[in-house]
Computed example of a mutant assay.
Amino acid sequence: MRNISDIIEQYLKRMLQDSGEGAVEIQRNDLADQFSCVPSQINYVISTRFTLEKGYLVESKRGGGGYIRIRRLELPAQAILHTHIHESIGQHMSQTAAEGLVYQLLEARVISNREAELMRAAVCRDVISIKLPYRDEIRARMMKAMLIALLRP
């Protein structure tokens, strides 16, 4: 059985998919009422599952007419993907950033579930058991190499 966070996440993703613009505006309290949960549960889902690393931009306006806007950021086209990889990864990459990029590629169906699992395993801090900043440098190089190999036409 899925928990309430998973249900809310899937609901929001479906709303994003159904919107022609790739963005939705929600009222936190209205959504909490709809799912019979506390508003902080909505905050939790948005702050942990709709992050920039996972390919989402979240904006909020507080106050009486406030809203939360979630926008899906699209990955660039295949032709410029290599440039995007080098620019977005850079010379260092944390495990959180690597996992976020893998998540974004998986959501965009650029890579398969199996490829995502292999990538996550390869860049895990337990596997690259050397001190920082060298670990983040190696992780960045590994991510670049894996993505370039996977995304070859």
Rank of each mutant, 00 (worst) to 15 (best):
G64Q: 15
T51D: 15
A32T: 10
V45R: 02
I46A: 04
T83P: 07
Y67G: 04
D30H: 10
G55S: 12
L81Q: 15
G64T: 15
S36R: 11
Q27K: 14
V24N: 03
Q78E: 12
E21M: 14
E74N: 11
Y67Q: 02
D30V: 09
R72Y: 05
H86G: 03
H84W: 08
Y56W: 07
R49V: 07
T51H: 14
N29V: 09
R71V: 01
G20Q: 02
G22I: 01
H86I: 02
Q17F: 15
E25T: 10
R72G: 02
Q41I: 07
Q34A: 14
A32G: 08
Y56K: 07
L81C: 14
D30W: 05
I26K: 05
S36A: 11
E74Q: 14
V45F: 00
G22D: 00
E87T: 09
Q17G: 07
D30P: 01
E87H: 02
E59Y: 08
R71E: 10
S88P: 07
P39H: 10
G66H: 05
R72N: 06
K54Q: 11
Q27T: 12
A32W: 04
A32I: 08
A32Q: 06
Q34R: 15
T51A: 13
T48A: 06
H82S: 14
G66L: 00
R62Q: 11
Y44W: 08
Y56C: 05
L73R: 14
G63E: 00
G64C: 05
Q78F: 02
K61F: 07
L31E: 01
H84K: 04
N43V: 10
S60T: 13
G65I: 10
A77G: 06
Y44L: 07
R49L: 08
Y56P: 01
L31T: 08
Q41H: 06
T83E: 15
D18T: 13
F35S: 07
Y56N: 04
I46N: 11
E59T: 14
H82E: 15
S47A: 14
V58E: 08
Q41L: 09
S36Y: 12
H84C: 05
S19L: 03
D30F: 00
I46T: 04
S88L: 05
G66K: 06
E59G: 10
L52Q: 14
I68C: 01
R49W: 05
R71A: 03
L31S: 03
F35Q: 09
S60M: 07
